[in-house]
């Protein structure tokens, strides 16, 4: 491992070959898990005694929220690798993660609102987790906009990566400051429904969904980043052979 492995898999042709071979497996496995999970969540899981059937939204809300955060972590990690080793492959991975992460954040917010409307009576409360999720969306949008508005490829990559890295450092601070602010403002409004204890029959579809989303995420990133790598390497000889 170490540097040798990075150079081996970091070279565009090797990366392209590896990723295109990996992609179908992840896609079909992910889709299968998502289908099983949604069937389990929508039809098999018993009704929650407190929230009725509305809790089934959780099976779609939690995976997207989970993925929106881990996608940001992955983006920051790829950015660090890109900055340190000047790796074009890492930059293209980071760039292709950003839109997917923003999409997942939006879905997490929307499904959260759809869950909140019947449960809390309003679609939006200034809850710590909702606010952090919204800030996360702003971070993604900042990355995407910055990348889009700098014309030079290399400069855009490195500038946007700096922003992503700064976001990684800042995300815990933002989250805890929002939590702290929130506990001082409105502690009791939602705490009753805040953490429903999920057990047994209700839990397994959720885990299956999360894993399924993860595999799907990997498949999408494989496809998008391979396209990005091809676009950047369009002048080299190995691309012409494809």
């Amino acid at each position: 491992m170490g540097l040798k492995a990075i150079y081996k898999y970091g070279s565009p042709p090797n990366f392209y070959r590896f990723v295109t071979r990996l992609e179908p497996w992840c896609l079909y496995f992910g889709l299968l898990l998502i289908l099983i999970g949604s069937a389990g969540g929508l039809f098999l899981a018993p009704k929650d005694y407190q929230m009725g059937d509305a809790f089934r939204i959780i099976y779609f809300h939690v995976p997207s929220a989970y993925l929106s955060m881990s996608a940001y972590a992955a983006m920051g990690f790829a950015s660090i690798i890109g900055i340190v080793w000047r790796s074009n492959v890492a930059f293209s991975v980071a760039k292709s993660i950003a839109p997917f992460g923003a999409l997942m954040t939006t879905i997490a917010l929307l499904t959260g609102m759809l869950w909140g409307k019947p449960m809390w009576g309003t679609a939006w409360v200034w809850d710590a987790r909702l606010t952090s999720e919204f800030i996360l969306l702003l971070l993604y949008l900042g990355y995407i906009t910055l990348h889009a508005s700098i014309r030079e490829q290399k400069k855009a990559d490195r500038s946007a990566s700096l922003v992503a890295i700064l976001g990684i450092i800042n995300l815990p601070i933002i989250h805890y400051s929002v939590v702290w602010w929130n506990t001082l403002h409105q502690a009791s409004t939602i705490s009753k429904l805040d953490s429903p204890s999920i057990v047994g029959e209700m839990l397994w579809p959720l885990l299956v969904m999360i894993i399924g989303y993860m595999f799907f995420f990997v498949a999408v990133i494989c496809r998008a980043s391979s396209a990005e790598v091809l676009k950047r390497e369009k002048r080299s000889s190995w691309v012409k052979a494809i």
């Binding site: 496809r223 396209a227 091809l230």
Partner: peptide
Amino acid sequence: YVWTSVFISFLALFLAYYDALKKH
């Protein structure tokens, strides 16, 4: 509420993969 969130989730997954496929 439930079916709308199911719908938008699947729509988002579809769009994400379709977009990547189209780029490629």
